[in-house]
C-alpha cells in the first residue's frame, strides 16, 4: 500500500443494489484516514458472465492499467470484482506474451504488472491491522452475527486470502467490535446461489434459503457479509424468497463495512443501513 491512498474500484452494483456497500466503504476509509481515488473511467470486470479467461484478462487489464498509472494498489468491496482483478493481475504479472497480446488489442490495456489488487476485508485485517483498527473503535456493537464469506474470499487458491474451509477474517473483526459469532462454520463458505438467479431461480432460492435459515437456527441477530451479489440474494431478494417458498425468515443482512462503520462511530444513515430490504434498526440499536 502506497502511503495512505488506494485506487477504488466500486464495481457495477455500487450504483444500484449495493449502493449501501459503496457508501459504507467510502465512509469507513475516510474515517480511517485512507484516501480512496476512484479508478478513472473504470469498466465492468466481466463478473461471472465473462467465461472466456482472455476476455476477463482484457477487461481487467484496462482497470489495472489505469490504477497503475496513478501508482496505486486497487481495492474493491466486491468479491467477484476482486477475483477477476486479482486473477488477471496474477496471469499478467509473470507473462510477457500475455501482456503483449493485451497491448495488441488496445494501448489502453498496457498493464505492466506493478500493482496489487485487494479486497476491502483483506486491507482492513492484513494491511491496516487489528491493532490500528482497535485504536480507532469508538463504539461497541454487541450483536450475535453469522459471518458469511461466500465464494471468492477463501477460494480459488490462486487468489484466496483466507482459509477455504474455515475463514476467520470477518470473525476477527466482529469480535474486535464487541460482537459474538454464532456457530456458522458449516455454512460460512457455501454459495448464496446468486449466479443462477436469472437462469435457475428455483436453485438459487433454495441455496439462499439454506444460508438464511441456518443463520436463524444458529440464533444470529444478523448475517454479516462482504459481497454485493450475496447482499442482493440474501437481503434484497429475501422477501421474494419468503414468498416463493412460503416461509418466514426476517433475517437482517449487513455488510462488514457497515458493521465496522458503526463501531467507528459513523452515523447509520451515512452507512446506508436504512436502505436494506430487511429492517436493520435492531442492529443499529445494539450500538453502545
Amino acid at each position: 500500500m502506497n502511503g495512505k491512498k488506494l485506487a477504488y474500484y466500486p464495481g457495477c452494483p455500487s450504483a444500484g443494489t449495493a449502493v449501501d456497500q459503496d457508501m459504507s466503504t467510502k465512509a469507513v476509509f475516510e474515517k480511517l484516514g485512507i484516501e480512496l481515488a476512484e479508478v478513472e473511467d473504470w469498466n465492468c470486470c466481466g463478473a461471472a458472465e465473462a467465461e472466456n479467461p482472455m476476455l476477463v484478462y482484457a477487461l481487467n487489464a484496462r482497470n489495472l492499467a489505469i490504477a497503475e498509472k496513478e501508482g496505486l494498489d486497487i481495492v474493491t468491496p466486491c468479491s467477484i470484482c476482486y477475483y477477476n482483478l486479482e486473477r488477471s493481475n496474477i496471469a499478467l504479472k509473470d507473462d510477457e506474451s500475455l501482456r503483449a497480446k493485451m497491448r495488441d488489442i488496445d494501448g489502453s490495456l498496457d498493464y505492466k504488472g506493478g500493482i496489487k489488487a485487494r479486497h476491502v476485508l483483506d486491507v482492513f485485517v492484513n494491511e491496516i491491522g487489528m491493532e490500528e483498527l482497535k485504536s480507532k473503535i469508538e463504539k461497541k456493537v454487541s450483536i450475535k452475527a453469522a459471518p458469511y464469506y461466500g465464494c471468492y474470499l477463501g477460494r480459488p487458491p490462486v487468489t484466496a486470502f483466507d482459509d477455504p474451509d474455515d475463514p476467520i477474517l470477518m470473525d476477527q473483526l466482529i469480535e474486535l467490535i464487541g460482537g459474538e459469532c454464532v456457530d456458522f462454520s458449516y455454512m460460512k463458505t457455501k454459495c448464496c446461489g446468486g449466479p443462477l438467479m436469472m437462469t435457475r431461480a428455483d436453485i438459487a432460492f433454495e441455496m439462499a434459503r439454506k444460508v438464511l435459515e441456518a443463520a436463524k437456527r444458529a440464533g444470529a441477530d444478523c448475517i454479516v457479509l462482504a459481497c454485493p451479489l450475496c447482499g442482493m440474494m440474501l437481503d434484497a431478494k429475501q422477501p421474494d424468497i419468503e414468498k416463493a417458498l412460503n416461509i418466514e425468515i426476517g433475517m437482517p443482512v449487513i455488510y462488514i463495512t457497515q458493521l465496522l462503520g458503526l463501531a467507528l462511530g459513523i452515523d447509520s444513515k451515512k452507512l446506508g443501513l436504512d436502505k436494506a430490504a430487511v429492517d436493520t434498526k435492531e442492529i443499529v440499536g445494539k450500538v453502545v
Partner: peptide
C-alpha cells in the same frame, strides 16, 4: 447449473 463457486476447484 454450475455456480462457479469454486468449491471443487479449491
Amino acid at each position: 447449473i454450475c455456480l462457479i463457486c469454486q468449491t471443487c476447484t479449491a
